[in-house]
């Protein structure tokens, strides 16, 4: 008889905790808190990453500092995500240092009513399409972006489908 594919056997058991900051991460966290002291950041450790929340007005300054600093040297923007928390947006910048190989997360909070945040293109050229996408799907204004045209949706699309409040079931495109 042909061989029968075995099925995975699953038993219920409580999952263990995720990974935590290692030695380097702790050192990085201290260093970040030190370097960014003037911006009054909220520093926290999420799993094995250091998360820094900064006020959005000073975001570009912060990123410039992170990129320019000799020891931090965050020269690579991995990912820019916009998360909709229903009352505010969170713009998340995942940074990476190619030379030093460490990572950090910078977050800014943007209130719903005033959905504006500075564009980081002057610091990270690669943020261009990310920001266009964020504008497209979440209706976030990235101030200072040279070309905030729709990227994924067509011109004239009504509404912001990335938001939690977008009425998908009532929405009729055609």
């Amino acid at each position: 008889m042909a061989e029968q594919p075995p099925r995975p056997h699953r038993r219920e058991e409580a999952p263990t905790a995720g990974p935590a900051l290692d030695e380097r991460g702790t050192a990085l966290m201290a260093l970040l808190a030190d370097r960014l002291a003037t911006f009054q950041p909220q520093t926290a450790a999420v799993l094995d990453e250091v998360v820094v929340t900064v006020p959005r007005e000073r975001l570009v300054e912060v990123l410039e500092l992170l990129k320019g600093d000799e020891q931090l040297d965050f020269n690579y923007l991995r990912c820019l995500s916009v998360v909709d928390y229903k009352t505010y947006f969170e713009v998340v910048y995942h940074l990476w240092s190619l030379a030093k190989r460490h990572k950090a997360v910078v977050k800014v909070r943007v209130p719903y009513e005033d959905a504006k945040t500075p564009s980081v293109i002057p610091v990270y050229r690669g943020a261009d399409w990310y920001e266009r996408e964020g504008h497209d799907l979440f209706g976030l204004m990235f101030e200072g972006h040279p070309n905030l045209k729709p990227l994924l949706l067509y011109e004239g699309f009504d509404g912001y489908p990335g938001r939690k409040s977008f009425p998908f079931h009532e929405y009729n495109e055609w």
């Binding site: 991995r78 990270y124 050229r125 690669g126």
Partner: peptide, 8 residues
């Protein structure tokens, strides 16, 4: 430099 800046 460009490759890094563009996030390639």
């Amino acid at each position: 430099e460009e490759a890094i800046a563009y996030g390639a």
